[in-house]
């Protein structure tokens, strides 16, 4: 058998997932994602997905994967390029149920990381507690997150700052300080 050589697509998807996996496993930590939000789409989304997108060019990327483009109520993934509509989307996204916590959606949205509001994070993946700075989110976003994340129900979030990501899985407790 010839030596197995990954294609560029394989390498990109693998690297994007690795960044996302470690970001989820260590909430609050920053990870490099060179291709930004589109890389996450390509690494995760497939024909089986129902996806909300707010940007026409990103919608083309999603449509090419064969995923259905739907409204927030029916989406399992939401990819936002603007934070303005994030409150309405977060309020409407499915959060799963106690029977099926895995049906809670994944919300990917832009934010500025490393500056702005100070948040204290505790929960799985965090040794003791950690502090992060984040800005660019709509007012009341963190409170709405707490209302939607009734563990084990909830929405898992990934914040994209150009080519860096930070994640807040539903298991993380967030306090504003």
């Amino acid at each position: 058998m010839a030596d197995p050589v990954p294609t560029q697509d394989d390498l990109r998807d693998n690297a994007a997932f690795e960044a996302l996996m470690w970001a989820m496993a260590r909430p609050g930590s920053l990870h490099d994602l060179p291709g930004g939000i589109a890389d996450l789409v390509l690494a995760l989304v497939d024909r089986e997905c129902r996806v909300l997108v707010d940007d026409p060019s990103l919608a083309q990327v999603v449509a090419a994967t064969g995923a259905a483009l739907v409204a927030a109520e029916g989406a399992d993934h939401a990819f936002l390029t603007r934070a303005e509509g994030a409150l309405a989307v977060l309020a409407a996204l499915p959060a799963g149920s106690p029977l099926y916590p895995d049906q809670g959606a994944t919300l990917v949205l832009p934010a500025t990381l490393g500056q702005g509001q100070r948040l204290r994070l505790t929960g799985p993946g965090i040794e003791g507690a950690t502090e992060v700075h984040i800005s660019g989110l709509p007012d009341g976003f963190i409170d709405l997150r707490a209302a939607r994340c009734r563990y084990p129900e909830g929405v898992d979030m990934v914040f994209v700052d150009v080519s860096r990501i930070m994640a807040l899985p539903r298991s993380t407790t967030v306090e504003g300080i």
Binding site: D10, D13, L44, R47, D102, P152, D156, R170
Partner: peptide
């Protein structure tokens, strides 16, 4: 002739999505 890492890209994407949910709800069977 074959996909890198044996599994096809679509299978990997499905497992990736489930692995992310598994991390988000530790100990919950996905």
């Amino acid at each position: 002739a074959f996909s890198y890492g044996f599994l096809d890209p679509s299978a990997k994407r499905e497992i990736r999505r489930k692995m992310i949910k598994a991390i988000a709800v530790p100990g919950c069977q996905i």
